[in-house]
């Protein structure tokens, strides 16, 4: 029914509004970049630190940059449920990744896993990002998934060191995020309190 379809479209539009600022693109880029730097310097903790650290930074920037420009909305229960399911799936995939890492580091690692580990690992990471993108309807994020997959493929077949391909993929994602962010800042000036009061 057209009326239902319009409401769904409206809900999707309201939800995707919060991805217009490019901050999640920058987050993915920084995380991948942090991962690359972690591998380069053998500082594995950088992976975890960059994930948690940048996540908190993005949340802070949302409050400082995004909400004063496009406003704030609490999502409906349906979207909240979708996000909860997404978190569960992410956790399952992360567990699968951890299992793969354990297999690789253990003595009984299969040959095929060792041989194609970079590609498999990046493929899985790319699948997570692409899956989230498609599920949320934020199709721009498929591009970041492609960068991650290409990073794995380049390392696998062109023998370029893994950290460098990761750093390059992260840098590309950051550049896209910055472009989207600047476009967002230009398009939506910060609303003054007087303006907001006038809306009441």
């Amino acid at each position: 029914m057209q009326i239902d379809a319009d409401l769904k479209k409206l809900e999707r539009r309201a939800f995707l509004t919060f991805f217009q600022d490019g901050l999640w693109d920058i987050f993915i880029g920084l995380f991948v970049l942090g991962w690359g730097l972690g591998m380069l310097t053998s500082a594995d903790y950088l992976v975890g630190v960059s994930f948690v650290g940048f996540w908190l930074i993005v949340l802070a920037l949302k409050r400082w940059l995004t909400y004063p420009r496009i406003g704030y909305a609490r999502l409906g229960q349906q979207k909240t449920r979708v996000i909860s399911r997404l978190v569960i799936i992410l956790a399952v995939v992360a567990l699968a990744g951890a299992l793969m890492a354990v297999l690789v580091s253990s003595g009984s690692r299969p040959q095929w896993l060792m041989e194609y580990f970079p590609l498999l690992f990046c493929g899985m990471l790319a699948l997570i990002v692409a899956g989230i993108a498609v599920w949320l309807g934020a199709y721009r994020f498929v591009l970041h998934a492609a960068f991650i997959l290409i990073a794995g493929a380049v390392h696998q077949w062109l023998n370029i060191k893994w950290p460098y391909t990761f750093i390059a993929a992260g840098a590309l994602s950051i550049l896209i995020g910055l472009y989207v962010l600047f476009r967002f800042l230009r398009r939506y000036p910060r609303a003054s309190p007087e303006e907001i009061d006038a809306g009441r």
């Binding site: 809900e11 309201a14 004063p68 406003g71 704030y72 609490r74 409906g76 609303a191 809306g199």
Partner: peptide, 11 residues
């Protein structure tokens, strides 16, 4: 479609 929103969001 949302639980609640501010005036700026609606505008």
């Amino acid at each position: 479609v949302v639980e609640s929103a501010d005036a700026l969001f609606l505008q």
